[in-house]
């Protein structure tokens, strides 16, 4: 069942007859814009970091939306957008088998080596 309602906002004076400002309450998940994952590189940063997700109709809109949602406070100078469905994730149920075996292998850390001064960002 779908309900049809007319919803008016301040600023809509007399627009109803023109078909404006009527917002139907049906809206199904099918009509929703796809979800995008957003990655931002900050001014000092070397890599793009995941900052969150948003909805957008296409890639161009995703980048514009990301600019408006995630860079308002000078957070970044570069944006990547990836449609969420293309992100493949590891299964949290397998976390034990995947990550725990690394716990007792400290010798894998590079702290056992002397780094030359020329090597930065380690």
């Amino acid at each position: 069942m779908s309900f049809h309602t007319n919803k008016y906002y301040y600023g809509d004076y007399g627009e109803a007859k023109n078909g404006a400002a009527d917002i139907s309450a049906k809206g199904s998940a099918k009509e929703e814009w796809p979800l995008w994952e957003i990655f931002i590189r900050s001014k000092q940063g070397l890599d793009h970091k995941h900052v969150g997700s948003l909805h957008a109709a296409d890639a161009a809109m995703a980048i514009e939306n990301a600019r408006d949602v995630y860079t308002r406070r000078m957070e970044g100078v570069s944006i990547w957008a990836v449609e969420s469905k293309y992100i493949h994730a590891s299964n949290p149920d397998e976390a034990g088998a995947l990550y725990d075996p690394a716990n007792d292998k400290v010798y894998r850390h590079p702290t056992f080596y002397d780094l030359p001064d020329e090597v930065k960002y380690m």
Binding site: Y9, Y10, G11, W33, L54, H55, A56, E64, N65, D68, V69, R72
Partner: peptide, 17 residues
């Protein structure tokens, strides 16, 4: 005037900006 009334959250923020 669109602030809080935008068609979707992202565009609400865009027009408020």
């Amino acid at each position: 005037e669109w602030c809080g009334h935008g068609p979707v959250l992202e565009q609400d923020i865009a027009i408020s900006n």
